[in-house]
Structures are given as C-alpha cells and as structure tokens.
C-alpha cells in the first residue's frame, strides 16, 4: 500500500517534531514508572525541569533575546498556587496575615495551577510592555532586574509569601504522571505557539530587526506575546515544583535555578523545541552520573568521591564548552525531522 502525498501525510510531517518529542518524553516516563521510588522522583523532577526549559525556550528561541527572569515567573506560579490550594489550617500557621478570601480558599489542583500560570502571564504582560522595547542586550539585563525584583518582593512580602521562611504544607499532588501530563501540555503549547504567524514574524525579526520593522512588523508586540506565553509555562513549572516538593522557598527561585535552566536550554540548543528537550535530558543524565560520583564508590576501605559542588563546576564547564565550540547546542537549532524522507 503506497502512501501518497495526501494532506494527512503533510500534517503528520509538520507535526512530526511534536509527536516525536512527546513520544520520547512519554517513553521515558513509562520506563521510569517501573523503577523504584527514587529514580521515579528524579524523573518527575526532570519532567518539571522540562516544563521550565520549554517555557524559557518559547521566549528565547523565538525572539533571540535571553531572559533571566523566567524563574521569577516560576516563583509567582508556585506562590499563587500554594496560596490558593493549601489548606486553610496550614495557611493560618505560616501566613497569619493573609486576606480572608485567600486564607479560606482551598482550590483543587488544576484551577490552582492554571491560576499560577495565569498570574505569571499577567505580570509578564505588565512588565514586558516596557521591557520589550529595549534592544536585545538591554532587554536581557532588564529581565535580570525582573528576577532580582521578584526575589526582593517574595523575600520581603512576609504576609503573603512568608518572606524568607519556607512555605510548607503544599498539597504534594505532583507525581510522575501529573508531571508527564503537564510536560506534554507544555510541548503542545510551545509547538502550537511557534507555528503561529506571530512567532514566525518574531523569528524573522531575530535575523534583522531593522528590516522587519521597515516591513511593518510590530516587533514589540510579537516579543510581548512570546514573553507572556513563556511566563505562563514558567509559572506552571513553578506550580509543579512547589507541589512536588511540598514547600516553596524563595532562595530556590533565584540564581542557581536560573543558571540551571539557562544551561539546559543552551546545551540542548536554544533555537528549537528539540533543543529544549535534548538539553533537559542530557543534563538530567549528567546530574545522575555526577550524583553517583559525589556519593562515591568503595575501593577497599576508602571511599573515592568527587567533592560536593563538582557537579555545578562541570555543568558550568560544559556550558562554556558548548558556547565556544557548538554555540547552537546539541540540536543545532533544528527540530527532529520526519525520518521517512520525501517521495
């Protein structure tokens, strides 16, 4: 039976990167579901990281501008969802000064998560409107400011966030399958977005901003759209992280996490969704290996182990090597292509 060049085949070819990536991610989750508890948790963590990296990719990959601020959106998502879904009793312990509406709210998981993403997106809309007018590098530094401001606000708004104290008692509903579900959703959203006309125009403006503007492309508007979608996904990632660990700590949403996510995206390749996935997987594997190395192994009576902190150094070194020798990352800016060729 010959496959003709029908519209079905064309659609499949276009959707192939998404289908392939979803399949890969699902396969990893399925394999992990047969593993003991600890590897399962690690895989869940990796899937949450995937959502975060995909969120970052949506903005960085399409606009060409590096954003350091996405972790602030993750924090927003985490805190909002926490506030809405935590049991009132827990909230009154940690956050006695909450306004009554929030203090008594006990939303189910999904609305809480969506609210977290939505608030992050709303903040991105407000903050992004002035920021997207800036040129590439200035905009990147400005997103750094977003990260710092977020950190300052969350760290000091004690009545709402608990300030420097950890916020504990979040319903820990994120298991392997929840994480997988959201990971797939993130891939679908990111893919759907990058196929839109707005994203296409944005990518065109990446090459030559002056030419794009001269052609009437409203670069600021398209950048803003990417920023908002990116913030939504980052917010979701934050929600997942919070409800996976069961606690939200402001210092967990700052420079180290930013570096990790940027490193994942960079190493995988910031120009494509495939790159985002590749980077997450590679770093997850690397982290596993390094974790084992830091635990060490027995040789006779001595334990040979890498000193704590080696993993971070190696990750930073890897990022440097990629930047110097293969700046487009593992995926090289390309998506997975339909393997069966054209007839």
């Amino acid at each position: 039976m010959k496959l003709g060049r029908g519209p079905v085949l064309e659609t499949l070819r276009r959707l192939w990167p998404l289908v392939a990536l979803v399949a890969i991610v699902a396969a990893i989750a399925i394999v992990a579901s047969f593993a003991p508890a600890v590897p399962q948790r690690r895989t869940t963590q990796a899937l949450i990281n995937l959502v975060a990296v995909v969120g970052l990719y949506v903005f960085v990959g399409n606009s060409g501008i590096l954003s350091f601020g996405n972790v602030a959106f993750m924090a927003i998502g985490a805190y909002v969802s926490a506030l809405l879904t935590m049991k009132s009793a827990a909230k009154s312990v940690f956050l006695p000064d909450l306004p009554q509406i929030i203090a008594s709210a006990e939303w189910p998981a999904l609305p809480g998560a969506l609210a977290g993403g939505a608030v992050a997106a709303a903040v991105a809309l407000v903050v992004g409107w002035p920021l997207m007018r800036l040129s590439g590098v200035s905009a990147s530094i400005a997103t750094f400011a977003v990260l710092v401001v977020g950190n300052v606000v969350f760290g000091n708004w004690t009545s709402v966030t608990g300030g420097q104290n950890s916020l504990m008692g979040l319903p820990a509903y994120v298991d392997l399958w929840t994480a997988l579900g959201w990971a797939i959703a993130a891939l679908v959203i990111a893919f759907a977005y990058q196929e839109t006309r707005s994203a296409l125009l944005l990518r065109a403006s990446r090459e030559d901003e002056a030419a794009a503007q001269a052609s009437g492309v409203n670069v600021v508007l398209h950048r803003l759209r990417a920023f908002v979608v990116s913030a939504f996904l980052s917010g979701i990632a934050g929600v997942l992280l919070g409800h996976f660990l069961g606690i939200v700590r402001v210092e967990n949403f700052y420079l180290d996490l930013t570096f990790l996510i940027v490193a994942m995206l960079l190493i995988g390749g910031r120009g494509s969704l495939t790159g985002a996935v590749a980077g997450t997987i590679v770093i997850a594997l690397l982290t596993e290996g390094l974790r084992e190395a830091e635990i060490g192994f027995q040789v006779g009576t001595t334990n040979i182990a890498a000193p704590a902190g080696t993993g971070d150094v190696i990750l930073a070194l890897l990022m440097l090597i990629i930047i110097l020798f293969r700046p487009d990352g593992i995926a090289g800016g390309r998506e997975l292509t339909w393997p069966f060729g054209r007839r």
Partner: peptide, 24 residues
C-alpha cells in the same frame, strides 16, 4: 565576532564557572 546574546551567555557561564569553582 559572535552576536550579543551569545556573548552574554558566555559571560554568564564564565561567571558561574568561576563561582562554582570557588565554592568547590
């Protein structure tokens, strides 16, 4: 001769590398 974003990322990477090395 790299584009500004690549330069920015590389300085970020160098910064973190040095910092993590110091912590180590």
């Amino acid at each position: 001769n790299a584009d500004p974003t690549t330069l920015l990322i590389s300085s970020f990477a160098v910064s973190f590398f040095l910092q993590k090395l110091l912590i180590l």
